[in-house]
Design a protein around this nucleic acid. Structure first.
Lengths: 151, 151
DNA sequence: ATTGCTGCAAAACGTTTGCACCTAT
DNA sequence: ATAGGTGCAAACGTTTTGCAGCAAT
C-alpha cells in the first residue's frame, strides 16, 4: 500500500456507503495513483496485467467509478470515446488543452473558469457538481508539433 | 432543399476538397439542420429512417463528420459515450450545463469563456481551434428537478 | 474511365452485464 | 448467514470498416 492517506480515505468512504473493503479495491487504487498523467480504464487494466496484478477488467472499471465517486480520482473527457481518470492528489485544479495534431495534452490553470462555473450555476439555480473545460488547438507551426509523428 | 445557404456552403466545401457532390450529403444536411437541439448520429439516422429518407447509417456518420469539418455543425461531448451535433446556424455561441439528475441540457452564454480560451492558446503558443465548456450540476431541490422522472 | 461514395453487414472499440463462486461483514 | 464483490465471457451501444456495386467527375 503505497498511498496510505488515499487508502484511508477510501476505507472511510467504503464503510460509510455499505461497500465492502476488498483487497482488489486497494490494489486498483494504488495502481491508479501510480499512473502518471491521465489514463483510461483499459490502459490501467493493461498496465496492471503486465505488472502481474491480478484484478479483472470488470473490477477495474467498477473500482474506478468508485474512486471517482469518492473524489480520489477525477474523470476527464477529451472528446474521444474513452473516459480518462487522473489522481486528484498532488496537483492543483487545472484544465486541458488538447493538440489536434498529435493528441498531446497540455495542462493549464485559470481561476476565472472556476468562478464562471460557480456564477453560472447560481444564476441558473443549480448546485455545482463539476465542470470540464477543454481547449482543442494546434501548434502554430504544424511541422514543429513535437508529437506529430508519434501516432 | 430547405436550407439553401448551408447547402451552398457545403457544395463549396466539397468542391474545394476533392469530395463528391452527392444527393445523400444534402439530404443529411437538411435533416441535421431541421433537428432541434442536440442530436447524436444514431438519433438522426433513426429520425431520417422514420421519415422514409433512405440514407444508410454509414453515410449518416460519414456525412456528419464532413459537416462538422466544414463548420456547418458543431460537435459536442457531454461526457457520455455519444457525440452530439448541433447546427452552427441561428444561434450565438454558447456552452452547456448538464443536469446530473435528469440529463436535461441548459444552454448559457459567457463571453468570458471565449476570451479565456483565446488567451490560453496565445499564451501557450497554440492556434485556437475549438473549445468545450460543460458544467455538470443538479437542481437545488432534487425532488423538483422537472425532468427527474423522465428517464 | 476513374475513383470516391453508398449501402449493407460485420467488426471494432470501450464499457457493462449475467452468472456462478467467493468473501467481508 | 447474507449481501455485495469478483472473475470470466458474453452482450452492449456507438461508431468504423470491408467490400461489391454505383454514380459524380
Amino acid at each position: 500500500m503505497k498511498h496510505q492517506e488515499a487508502a484511508e480515505n477510501l476505507r472511510e468512504y467504503l464503510k460509510n456507503g455499505n461497500h465492502r473493503v476488498t483487497p482488489e479495491r486497494f490494489i486498483v487504487l494504488d495502481a491508479a495513483l501510480d499512473f502518471k498523467e491521465h489514463f483510461s480504464a483499459d490502459e490501467l487494466y493493461a498496465s496492471m496485467k503486465s505488472s502481474k496484478l491480478k484484478v479483472s477488467r470488470a473490477t477495474v472499471y467498477n473500482t474506478l467509478d468508485l474512486l471517482a465517486d469518492c473524489s480520489l480520482l477525477t474523470v476527464r473527457n477529451f472528446g474521444d470515446k474513452m473516459k480518462r481518470y487522473e489522481s486528484s492528489f498532488s496537483k492543483q485544479s487545472h484544465d486541458h488543452l488538447i493538440c489536434i495534431n498529435c493528441g498531446k495534452i497540455v495542462e493549464f490553470t485559470s481561476e476565472q473558469v472556476g468562478e464562471i462555473y460557480k456564477n453560472v450555476c447560481s444564476k441558473l439555480g443549480f448546485e455545482p457538481v463539476n465542470y470540464s473545460f477543454n481547449i482543442f488547438a494546434k501548434c502554430k507551426n504544424k511541422e514543429k508539433c513535437p508529437h506529430l509523428n508519434e501516432k
